[in-house]
Design a protein around this nucleic acid. Structure first.
Lengths: 248, 248
DNA sequence: CTGTATTTGTCCGTATGTATA
DNA sequence: ATATACATACGGACAAATACA
């Protein structure tokens, strides 16, 4: 009656929509994960003890623990030891999300699924609109903060320190721009980018970078959106050229 | 001699830079993770069997397995059963990265660390530069693909189907824009956004959406970057207004 | 300060399921 | 069909950390 040209096995699998069986620990992890994502287990709430989870799921303690380890790797729960210990639903953490995204981008870059040039272009594509938004939404406090950070960059003497301070300066622009989604996504892209860049800072290039920072700040302060965008683009190109000198 | 106003405990902890002890399974996961990220365990390579890992780390099987579960939750390894089974380093997977980013954004949105408006603005901030890049880098094949997808949207009759097709249309623009970093990041943002949007498609709004798609396509085809950007902005605003009608 | 209870961390031994040769 | 190699799962036990009386 039912597609007689298929093998009996295939018919059964197809008509009943059978799925490959999943290990117990994965099923448990999936169920708990769903509860957390649906908000039925709110952040900070405590899961049952491992023994109770064993009872409810009808599995051994090893199985439950493996499921909990998966959730903790997802940054969905943390477990603490001791009398008042247990497994608790974590509050979402921006930093953890950024670190995870960074390693993912790094791996995708390593396997040539995304290229160096795309990372750089993505940075430009994020940072130009961001500096425009920052110009529109600037506040006296924000501008003052930028000035202080630019001074920190100039004061830094070693290359690693300079790099860190410079990233703070750029991050501050994202903060002033006021979009936390963009502010969250941009740093992992920079980080993945700079992992394959060789640092080549010289006293000469540092001076020109300081000058570019100043120009960006001035345009932001004056409310000159186009000028700020132009200055930022020039700055990013300069940063790229410093770190990847032409190799003839 | 050494900061005598601190408690002895604090002095010891400070001078020796002591760290909180980590469970064995976390240490093992960290070590293996580092090996994978450094590329010393290339994608596809096979880890030692659980028994051998027990021997090298000097721990029991339980501990090794919990560490492996953490790595598998990170999408760094997969394990298969059977004689030729074992634990293998995975090749980086774009889809897995996107899904993870989506759930992260969803959680951050739920805990008010990022707002609805920021998600929408982020979409605009990514999509306007993308449609500009797509216009510059358009190819006849790409434009033909856009036409086909726009026709698919018009042909779709149910609201969910329409939504899916429309996302395909937008995704195609990202593909033509040629930046896989942006193309990777945008969909999770949409998805997190649409989770809190109520679908409210009506026949009337569908017609205007189809018209906007056509206009975007025409500007891309003519190479009119500014026009394409304007049309896209108008379209995104329309999409927002449909789904979030003013609630007076 | 000293148990004591609670809970996770870790180990061992054993049995089962699964895929390959 | 049988053997082999591997992950999966169980149950029991003890150690270690933490809070609290």
């Amino acid at each position: 009656m039912n597609t007689p040209d298929l093998t009996p096995d295939a018919v059964v699998a197809d008509t009943l929509a059978l799925r490959r069986i999943e290990p117990a620990y994965q099923q448990i992890a999936s169920q708990l994960r769903a509860l957390i994502l649906e908000g039925r287990l709110p952040a900070g709430s405590r899961l049952p003890t491992e023994d109770k989870l064993c009872a409810t799921f009808g599995v051994s303690r090893t199985t439950v623990r493996e499921a909990l380890r998966m959730l903790s790797a997802d940054n969905l729960v943390i477990t603490t030891r001791g009398a008042t210990g247990g497994t608790f639903v974590t509050t979402p953490d921006v930093l953890a999300v950024q670190q995870r995204l960074q390693t993912s981008l790094r791996l995708l870059n390593g396997s040539n699924e995304i290229s160096h040039d795309e990372l750089y272009e993505a940075r430009v594509l994020l940072e130009i609109p961001a500096v425009r938004a920052a110009t529109r939404r600037r506040t006296p406090e924000g501008v003052a903060r930028l000035r202080a950070l630019a001074a920190d960059v100039e004061a830094a003497r070693t290359t690693p320190d300079r790099t860190t301070r410079s990233e703070d300066f750029h991050q501050a622009i994202f903060d002033i721009a006021g979009n936390r989604v963009i502010a969250l996504i941009a740093p992992p892209i920079w980080a993945a980018l700079s992992l394959s860049w060789r640092e080549r800072g010289s006293a000469h290039s540092w001076a020109s970078i300081d000058h570019e920072h100043d120009q960006i700040m001035e345009h932001i302060e004056r409310g000159d959106e186009d000028g700020a965008a132009r200055a930022m683009l020039k700055h990013l190109q300069e940063l790229r050229d410093i770190r990847r000198p032409e190799q003839s």
